[in-house]
Amino acid sequence: MVDLDTRVRPESPSPTTAPATRRRPRRQLLPYLLLIPAVVLELLIHIVPMLVGIFISFLHLTQFYIANWRQAPAAGLSNYRYALDFNQAAGKELLHSFLITLVFTVVVLAVSWALGMAAAVFLQRPFPGRAIIRTIFLIPYALPVFASVITWNFMLQRDNGVVNHVLVDQLHLVGGDRPFWLIGPNSFYSLVIVEVWRTWPFAFLMLTAGMQSISQDLYEAAGLDGAGVWAQFRGITLPMLRPVNRVLLLVLFLWTFNDFTTPYTLFGRGAPRQADLISMHIYQNSFVTWNFGTGSAMSVLLLLFLLVITGGYLRIANRGAQDA
């Protein structure tokens, strides 16, 4: 392992230098052959189901037709009208879930980024114990989600959980009845806290990696000019991290927005209305009513939204990159 260390250094990948000058026709078949297994799998599990999903969204695919979906009657746009009719219960609930998810995502993104950034700055320069703290910060990320979130479920129990024990029994911050954390309005805050706990170490990881590529000379020069820690952060660290942030914010947004595991493990199959994230909403809607047509229409709408957001974001981010 140590021997290999000296040869493999993924931290600084050498720029890709293609053997383009010695291209021979016989050899050019090989890359395609190498890609075949990956392409077949991608087609089978990603591309084809996506197309089938779009197709299903135009069908009345109820439980009678699931075993034989080609027999399902066409629905035209009625599934979409159903999902987007905000005067009816289904459309109203979908809109509600969408807005909840949006607020949830923005809050989690902001807090996770801030915590990750703080941790990365604190650990930027060596000091005794740095390696241990770094490892501690990685633990929430390394734990299997279902195991850590079920622990949070226990911690947020009303009668025997640690959260109420601290808030009510030890600090006496909450008077009166012990609050519920997994049902009712508080469930939203519980979900935010658990999601932040899971997400900020990833922000920390990415930002730490980004900081490693910032030259120490910059800080030393700034230090000679009398710039304090805060001025150095604003003048050097933040601008130099712009490329990392560009990717990090998008990835965090998509992961948080699409998250299913956390609400499912925290609340079980019945998420409270105040914490009804969009993936859970579509899932419950589809497997409670067994109407896959409307579920697929909602999924396609979700995909369109994410495509618009991602496309718009990348345009703005790339324009920003060219100006900089």
Binding site: V48, P49, M50, G53, W69
Partner: peptide, 27 residues
């Protein structure tokens, strides 16, 4: 094209693939 298509499937919500995959597997 391959890199972009493969990486972009990573950002799609799992729920989008779940229903059709379930239907395909059952069939």
């Amino acid at each position: 094209t391959f890199s972009v298509v493969v990486l972009s499937t990573q950002m799609f919500p799992g729920i989008l693939f779940l229903l059709p995959l379930y239907v395909i597997f059952v069939n």
